[in-house]
Amino acid sequence: MILRAPSRRLLLAGGLALAAAPFPARATPEAARAAMRAFAGGAEPRRGRVELDIPTLVENGNAVPTVVRVDSPMTEEDHVVEIALFNERNPLPDIARFHLGPRCGEAWVSTRIRLGDTQTVHALARMKDGSVWAASAELIVTLPACIEG
């Protein structure tokens, strides 16, 4: 993905050692869907209420800043119980599950995740009433140049 080739020499440098992806790609969108179905239990995940904030272009798949926010009053009667992150192209579809409750005050989590490849990431939230809400984001994972051989 050389957008602007500075010179012929640098084009040659396309032969530079490129970093290895953090993972061999192995999971599939089907595996991710199965994991999400298991998380949702009987519920049909609905779009909305979940906001997934993750960079569109990732500089390095080893640490991708990821924030999930869920629209919820976080009261005793109505709150987020669990937030889960899934991916489609790492060896395993699961990334993390966060357990929350009314004492969190706000349904918001921030972490850093590994992504082995350009892919789609999903965030699902289960509410106290058992309903499940979802958001997803497509992102491009690039590899750094000039790594040790």
Binding site: F23, N62, A63, V64, L85, N87, N90, P91, L92, D94, I95, A96, R97, F98, H99, L100, G101, P102, R103, C104, G105, E106, A107, W108, V109, S110, T111, R112, I113, R114, L115
Partner: peptide, 25 residues
């Protein structure tokens, strides 16, 4: 204040030197 108020189950897809932030009342 007497309870586990936040928890997380982590998988290998969490970055090295794990960073987790959340909110608390």
């Amino acid at each position: 204040d007497g309870a586990t108020v936040f928890a997380a189950d982590l998988h290998p897809a969490i970055s090295a030197n794990p960073y987790i932030a959340f909110r608390l009342r």
